[in-house]
Every structure is written in C-alpha cells, then in structure tokens.
Amino acid sequence: MKNKAIHFIIIILFFISISACKNNSNSNAETVIDSRYSGESIFNLKGNWHTQNNETISLSALKGKTLVMVMIYTSCKAACPRLIAQMRDIASKMPTDKLDQLNFVLVSIDPETDNPERLKAFAIANNMNEPHWTFLQGTKTNVQEFANVLSVKYKQISPMDFSHSNIISVFNTKGELIHQQEGLSVNNKETIKSIIKEIL
C-alpha cells in the first residue's frame, strides 16, 4: 500500500512538473490569441485583477476603450490625492458624450490592503463611481510587472506607506502606450490633448 501511495505521488509530481511549464504545450494557442494585439500592447500581460465591483478580469478585458491609467494606493495621504485630483481634472475635461469610449483606471500598488470592498468605498467617497472609473487590485507579482510596463517605480517604506513615481499613462484602444505625463506640478493639457485626439 505504501508503495502504491509513493507511485501515486510520483505520478502527480510528474503532472505538476509538466503543467508548471504550460508555455510549451500552449505556445501555439497562445500565439493565436496574442496576435490580436501588437507586440507593444499591454493586453499581452497575463494575470488576473479584481475590480472594485469584485469582478475578476485580465487587462485585455479593457480593450476597445482609450485607457487613462495611474498607480495609487488608497491609504496614501501625500501624493496620491493630488494624482487622483489630476485624474478627475482630466476626466472633467472630456466631452460627456464620449465618456463611454474612455476608461480611467486606477491600479493599486498596495494589493494587500486595497481589496475590492476598499476600492469600492474609495470610489464612492471620491465621487469616482461612474462606469468610466475602474479600480484594480492585482497580486504582488502582476502589480510589479504592470508598474514596470508603465516605468513606475515604487517601494514600500513602512507598512502603510509607499513611495512611488507619479505617472499618468494613456493607452489607445489596442493597449498601446501613446502618452505619459510625469510629476505632480504639470498641468494636464498635453495629456488631455492626446486623449481627445484618440476619441475624436
């Protein structure tokens, strides 16, 4: 009996070892899926995210709309409120009849704290509860990966606080980066211009 159990474990381990490298067997299927996006598209990123409405999505679910993205965390007292104000300023300058072509996405750099409930509460408290606002909770790994795509640097400096760069990024409907603004003191003119150009 002991022998059988050991054999069984070996077989299971074998299957695990194969599935760990999924890329091998799925590479063909993957290429087909990926070919819908260009090589520069953020929709090539794998990994799941939770929205403030507790839906589980991949980034590619955001395709078809012009995306304005920023990384924040809800317990932030310093730079984020200003970043969020910038996002709201940009949103307020958009023609209201075009808002359904836009998605303003706020990605949390603190996925341990910022769960969907917290993000939802934050959205409501900050009047960002309309359908053109999306808040995302990732995993430590896919947040790190996404930050690298945006060239956003961040680090945890205490259990409650992060230091991070302040970058707002605009992506076209295919997930390709078309504009970035960096810093808190910039006005949003160029960013607004680049978005308007995209949706008109």
């Binding site: 790190q144 640097k153 760069s165």
Partner: peptide, 10 residues
Amino acid sequence: SSIFLIDESK
C-alpha cells in the same frame, strides 16, 4: 524598480 535614488514622489 523599487530603487530610486532621487525620490520621485516628492
């Protein structure tokens, strides 16, 4: 990417 010698946030 957690290394920034000049703090970019403020």
